[in-house]
Design a protein around this nucleic acid. Structure first.
Lengths: 206, 206
DNA sequence: TAGATTGTTAATCGATTAACAATC
DNA sequence: TAGATTGTTAATCGATTAACAATC
């Protein structure tokens, strides 16, 4: 019998814990507590202990958590304990910004291996360390290299058909910057980034 | 007596409803239902009706919702029924991408009025329709123009001090692309965009 | 030892869902 | 009228919090 799945809302907080642990480590700390983590993140210490308890026991009573150790454990849980290949679709302004800041990805468990676009004027051009590849070659490259994660940075009108192609080629997780809800089969993960949604959320409180 | 506050999780869905209504309108539809909206967003129809019921009655039994009308009402609720000025701090690659795609903001209730940077090599340069202004002038401009919303696109190490300056100058809502939790006084809204958080969340399910 | 903090249980709190009368 | 869909109530479900024994 499979044990009950961990709630997605718990999973969604683990990357934040990981990020905060990096910051603490960068400040020279080696030990932290659920209280300190909670304070940094605006969460209760009980919630942090509860979240971690879904996966095991990582702390010591009276002492707290070893930062290095907890980082390793969280990386293992999130499956970012090894580098994961990512491809990017769309070599527009946003695509450029993403490629040029790929260290942000590399530092945190991802490796940007290819950029695709179908605009003939962009194909063959170099952005940072990567050459823009014709979208035609995308399925083959994704399949051959076993890439599982893709970032969509194309206009909203092309996003669904790009997503279809990606899924067909074997992509299992999509981060989309297009402001539309994508239709994907069961088992394919999708997350969205739409800055305007956040702005409109905040204006409610003005 | 003030009526009980609407849960933030409800507020966070309203921008998604608004976005989906635009899409339906763009497809030529004039009427929709809680069921159709739910289907598009992957939510139950009951949830959509419940969410809307916090603010009033916007539909007709047997018919559904007039798209145009519901859009207007949601815009009013979210206070994006008039254009809101936004300023941007950071004229790096990400800042460039944001300015060059400002139509995305304009179409959905925001108006990008200024870009700031403190790098002398960037000050005075033009990005799209805007000239990069020295950060020194930022507080004055924010105050004089009554800007309430800011987007932070600077490196993590400068984000907190930028936020402090913004708050001091009167900014009430901050959208930050820096991967750190910002400390701001009660009453100032902050939202974050960190693509890596989403990627790490998805890898859990791979 | 005394002080601190974990992991876990039970209680509380809040959000989602199902169901249906009202009514267009 | 018959069919459809809303707005709302009550029931269910799930997440957060408080509290504390265990123990470093």
């Amino acid at each position: 019998m499979r044990s009950k799945a961990v709630p997605d809302i718990v999973i969604s907080r683990l990357p934040l814990y990981l990020r905060t642990l990096s910051h603490l480590a960068a400040e020279g700390k080696t030990i932290t507590s659920s209280q300190e983590l909670g304070q940094r993140l605006g969460l209760s210490s009980a919630q942090i202990r509860k979240d971690l308890s879904h996966f095991g026991e990582f702390g010591k009573q009276g002492t707290g958590y070893d930062i290095e150790f907890l980082q390793q454990q969280l990386k293992k849980i999130l499956k970012v304990d090894r580098r994961r290949d990512v491809c990017l679709i769309g070599a527009g302004d946003l695509g450029h910004a993403i490629v040029l800041h790929h260290e942000m990805l590399e530092e945190r468990g991802f490796h940007l291996v290819a950029v695709f676009d179908h605009n003939p004027r962009k194909i063959g051009k170099t952005i940072g360390h990567l050459e823009v590849i014709d979208s035609e070659a995308m399925p083959t490259i994704i399949r051959d290299q076993g890439i599982q994660i893709a970032i969509i940075a194309v206009p909203a009108r092309s996003a669904q058909s790009v997503a279809d192609t990606l899924v067909e080629a074997g992509i299992r997780a999509i981060l989309s910057y297009a402001p539309i809800t994508l239709n994907v089969p069961e088992g394919v993960q999708v997350q969205y980034i739409d800055p305007v949604i956040h702005l409109q959320h905040m204006t409610y409180y003005l």
